[in-house]
């Protein structure tokens, strides 16, 4: 091996190292400031307006052509259902992409009803956890998924901070993940609100651009001082969600996880993930370079010196 090839090797490895280390860093910086698409839509859920009629559940069932429920949608008996030894209220399932639960506030005031569904995160953890890239955050704000590529690993179910994606355990041969898709295909893409919003009699669900909804939420708090908890749930949680909530009672009393970070879930692993391409691309080249250099010296230890000496004496 000549001196030129060694120089070339060092230059090349330095250059590629620079490219690889800079590129992910730039990408990481961009994702940290991503606050959703500018024209992304959202829904503001005002818990003070919900009367627990479950029209949203019925509308969702119809729109998404889901199987018939076990009980009629106007049967209040479902509010008394609990699972896992009474620790858990109803959750979204393969048969119900949205569910309304009833909560009794600690201060003894009237029961509060809370609708749950996919919150359509700005930076969805389900999307980042999916290794077959089944998930997409659309420019309209919806988090949709391609069930054709889903391999059923259920990483998204573990990753979701709101425990939303459900799984079709009932299907033995073609199970897949199921969740609310913001009525993306049938309504949102055409500029229409999702079926649940259209079905809500109380306008507990307000549809609009996410940016406008935050203004509306603040306006509601300003207009009726003392009515609401001074917080818009979903404005900052896990990097922001398309669905936002207003409440008159503390959010933790009505089933919300108030311990969530304001950073997107991906931020937890972003630094680590940025080093992966560097390690994978640079380390093999670098260490095989070291190895070759060491071997080279070993093999030609005597030869090199004698030839240099010979040349010097000439």
């Amino acid at each position: 091996m000549s001196k030129i090839s060694r120089r070339r090797f060092l230059a090349a490895s330095l250059a590629s190292g620079a490219v690889i280390t800079l590129a992910p860093a730039k990408k990481a910086l961009a994702s940290a400031t991503f606050e959703g698409y500018p024209d992304g839509m959202g829904v503001l859920v005002d818990l003070t307006r919900c009367v627990g009629c479950r029209s949203c559940e019925a509308a969702c069932n119809q729109e998404q052509q889901l199987p018939a429920p076990d009980l009629p949608f106007d049967d209040p008996a479902v509010f008394d259902q609990t699972f896992h030894g009474g620790t858990q209220k109803r959750r979204t399932t393969e048969k119900a992409y949205t569910v309304v639960n009833r909560y009794e506030p600690k201060d003894g005031s009237a029961p509060v009803y809370r609708k749950i569904q996919c919150n359509h995160c700005n930076e969805p953890a389900c999307l980042t956890s999916c290794f077959v890239n089944a998930y997409t955050k659309t420019k309209e704000g919806a988090v949709i998924y391609n069930s054709k590529v889903c391999v059923g690993c259920r990483n998204c179910m573990v990753a979701c901070p709101f425990n939303i994606p459900a799984y079709s355990y009932s299907s033995a041969f073609d199970p897949m993940v199921k969740k609310c898709i913001f009525c993306h295909e049938t309504r949102l893409k055409q500029g229409q609100p999702p079926a649940c919003v259209a079905g809500c009699p109380q306008e507990a669900l307000t549809f609009g651009h996410r940016a406008s909804l935050i203004k509306i939420a603040r306006e509601r708090m300003r207009h009726q001082p003392g009515r609401y908890v001074d917080h818009i749930y979903g404005e900052k949680e896990v990097g922001g969600t398309s669905w936002l909530y207003l409440s008159a009672v503390p959010f933790e009393e009505v089933g919300f996880d108030t311990s969530l970070q304001t950073e997107p879930i991906i931020s937890n692993v972003k630094d680590f993930l940025a080093t992966v391409p560097m390690v994978l691309a640079i380390w093999p080249a670098l260490f095989s370079g070291f190895h070759l250099l060491a071997k080279h010296k070993e093999n030609h230890a005597g030869d090199d010196h004698s030839s240099v000496d010979e040349e010097a004496h000439k």
């Binding site: 229409q192 259209a198 306008e203 651009h209």
Partner: peptide, 30 residues
């Protein structure tokens, strides 16, 4: 109240005060 056209008109009017006016169904029921 949530049609694309109505939202567009509403947001184009930056001086609008009533940004949170309920639609007809909402107004009745509320």
């Amino acid at each position: 109240p949530f049609s694309a056209e109505y939202l567009r008109t509403k947001e184009a009017d930056s001086e609008r005060y009533h940004i949170d006016k309920p639609g007809l169904k909402g107004a009745y029921h509320l």
